[in-house]
């Protein structure tokens, strides 16, 4: 799954996507309550939130599939609504639910949706074959998709979004229900896309995926964007601390005592393996920690630093775990 992909045409607009005050209610339920964010060309943006947070609703409005109650979506400098057409070709949308014609083959599905995107002739044929290769479906291209496994359907679902080489690829939980192997290849595929300048909007409730793929992250809960920034910024914002696990032997209690008095260290304790510390920022502190421990006749055999992850950030912000 690593065929070279031709880069989309360079985009002159400073932003690929601009979302301002987007709102949507389903009857009594306020699914999205005024969400705003921006994505620059080639940027990977992750929308992280638990089930029912409003991720899909937001994305469907951005893709121009669902009419918003209020707010504005601008794609490559042009406003996008459910009835605007031309600007939609800048977007490749991979819906959360697999959306395929089950009585048509993989190739027929791709060809049809390619035509809907305005591709035709040799270019269409070329792109269909490229995407089949990219999604590792070339040898099953002629089979009706009803005969496909869940993972194969997912891969084709993503492939359709890539056909027309959009400026912005929107993926709505693309790895749900996929085995480890397929999941890894999907993530590879997305990384490959960004290397070629495609911007990505990626929603998930898997922290690892966002941490791996996305430069910037928006945390969404109950229809609101409650925090936004790079992972480091978010962690700083909520004041979460690094956990330093030191494997050590010797006079541990004396060591803990002295290290605990260092500036920037908030907690220190003895464990079965050695010493555990909670610090503001581990990187600049490590040399002084080693030095202090050595002076206390403790010999260090190993060290492991656990930076706080977005899970901790989410927990801090909402008082709930991200996954139910």
């Amino acid at each position: 799954m690593n065929t070279p992909v031709t880069a989309p045409a360079p985009n002159r607009s400073p932003l690929v996507l601009q979302v301002e005050g987007l709102r949507k209610s389903y009857g009594e339920i306020q699914a999205v309550k005024g969400i705003s964010f921006e994505i620059a060309p080639g940027e990977n943006y992750g929308l992280l939130g638990p089930n029912g947070a409003g991720k899909t609703t937001t994305i469907q409005m951005i893709a121009g599939v669902l009419a918003a109650d209020g707010g504005r979506v601008t794609v490559c400098g042009e406003e996008l609504t459910t009835v605007t057409t031309s600007v939609k070709s800048h977007i490749g949308w991979v819906p959360q639910e697999v959306a395929l014609y089950d009585r048509l083959s993989a190739r027929e599905n791709l060809a049809f949706f390619g035509r809907m995107q305005g591709l035709s002739g040799k270019e269409l044929t070329k792109r269909v074959e490229e995407v089949l290769h990219l999604t590792a479906l070339s040898d099953r291209a002629g089979d009706k998709t009803i005969k496909f496994s869940g993972g194969m359907r997912r891969r084709l679902n993503i492939g359709i979004g890539l056909l027309h080489q959009p400026d912005l690829l929107i993926l709505d939980e693309p790895t749900v229900g996929v085995d480890v192997q397929s999941r890894a290849s999907i993530l590879d595929q997305v990384e490959e896309m960004t290397r070629h300048g495609m911007a990505v909007l990626y929603t998930t409730h898997y922290i690892e995926e966002v941490e791996r793929l996305c430069r910037r992250v928006g945390i969404i809960d109950h229809g609101e964007l409650i925090a936004e920034g790079t992972k480091t910024e978010l962690v700083k914002m909520v004041g979460e601390r690094d956990r330093v696990l030191v494997n050590a032997v010797g006079n541990l209690s004396e060591g803990v005592n002295r290290v605990g008095r260092l500036e920037g260290v908030h907690q220190a304790g003895v464990t079965t393996e050695g010493v555990e510390l909670l610090v503001d920022d581990a990187t600049p502190l490590l040399p002084r920690i080693f030095e202090t421990l050595t002076r206390s006749e403790v010999s260090v055999t190993g060290v492991h630093v656990e930076e706080p992850d977005l899970e901790a950030v989410f927990l801090h912000l909402t008082g709930r775990a991200l996954r139910d």
Partner: peptide, 15 residues
């Protein structure tokens, strides 16, 4: 039911 309508609606073709 197949969700393909949503895909069509996301394409550059008017409803």
């Amino acid at each position: 039911r197949l969700h393909t309508l949503a895909r069509l609606l996301a394409s550059p073709i008017s409803p």
